[in-house]
Simulated scan of single mutants.
Amino acid sequence: MKRGALILCAFWAVIDASAGFANAPGSSLRPVARGQVAPSVIRPVSPDTVGVRPEVPKTNTVIVRRSLRPQARADRVKPRATQSLANPKPGSVCGDPAIMGAVVGDVPGKIKGCGIARAVRVTSVSGVRLSRGALIDCPTAKALKTWVDRGMKPAIGRRGGGVQEMRLFASYSCRTRNSKKGARISEHGKGRAVDIGAFILKDGSEMTVLKDWDNGRKGRILKEMHETACGPFGTVLGPKSDRYHKDHFHFDTARYRNGTYCR
């Protein structure tokens, strides 16, 4: 019996060795050099702790077993959050930090066809103030800013230290074109137009449409400003258009089938 048991044990030992060779790795595993292990990882092992599960230190960590969903924004917070996205700079309007002013809201008209939806009162554009607030809509305010940046400022350049103020003759006014009886409602009556008559420079000097349109260097600058407004605005009128615009530029954002109307 003892001999048979020994033979059986030897048989199973051969089987285990064969299985081990079959699952053996293709190359020998090399131990990681001690210098590559952080010192804090290397700890001496005590014979008394062999086979004992290490104790996990207690921390204040909170285990989240499911993803947290953000809470719905309170109704009282929504208007303020929306306004901060629309007006990135305090005092700015139309979502553009370069257009300063105040939100007015809807302006009803006294006669049919007049009025402004979501009106603003613009006080300065790209650092150039207006002599008084322009009551207009945002598309007109943005067109004015485009012209100031790409037309007016480059035309004047460094002359007199640059432009400090635009003298506003008119913005919103509920009336017909040129105040003629029976005529169509003016773009001024829709908040889509501004009339500018002069430009005050930082050194105190000024250029006026009435006096300087044909006055040498100043006249050339005014003509360049008039020309560069054609594009940002749909209608551009000046001294060459008619007797009603001898002393100012009329800019509005009305568009026609033939494109921009410039005179």
Rank of each mutant, 00 (worst) to 15 (best):
R3V: 15
D75Y: 09
V194R: 02
G105D: 00
P232R: 02
L222W: 00
S28R: 00
A198Y: 00
I63E: 13
P70W: 10
N215Q: 05
P54S: 12
I136C: 12
I42T: 15
P154S: 02
Q71V: 12
I136F: 06
I200F: 11
K2P: 15
D137L: 07
L85R: 10
G133W: 07
K78Y: 06
P239L: 04
V41L: 13
A19L: 13
R255S: 10
V128I: 12
N60L: 13
T123R: 14
R80C: 08
R30S: 04
Y172A: 00
G182S: 06
Y256F: 14
N178W: 07
D212S: 04
A155Y: 04
S131A: 04
S171K: 02
L130R: 01
T176Y: 01
M225G: 07
K78R: 12
R150A: 14
R220D: 06
M152S: 04
T49Q: 09
P25V: 14
I221C: 01
S40E: 14
P154H: 00
C230E: 07
K58M: 15
E206N: 13
H188A: 03
P97E: 07
F249V: 00
G20S: 15
P154C: 02
A22E: 12
I15N: 11
D212A: 06
G101N: 00
A17D: 13
I99W: 01
F251Q: 06
L130Y: 01
A134Q: 04
T176G: 00
A5H: 07
W12N: 08
M1H: 01
A5S: 06
L222T: 01
I196H: 08
I63M: 15
G216N: 10
L201K: 14
K58L: 14
G105L: 02
T235S: 05
L210E: 04
V41T: 15
I196D: 05
M100V: 07
P44F: 02
W12G: 07
A10G: 13
C230L: 13
V194C: 10
L237D: 00
P44S: 03
G4L: 08
G238R: 00
P47M: 11
S186K: 02
M207A: 06
G216R: 03
W12L: 05
Y244R: 05
S84I: 11
V52M: 06
N23P: 03
G151F: 13
F249D: 00
D75W: 06
Y244M: 05
R184L: 01
L210Q: 08
V77D: 09
G197I: 01
A81R: 12
V37T: 11
S124V: 08
I185C: 01
T208E: 11
G238K: 00
R66W: 05
G26D: 12
M207E: 15
S28I: 11
G35Y: 11
K202C: 11
R150Q: 14
P79F: 01
S40H: 15
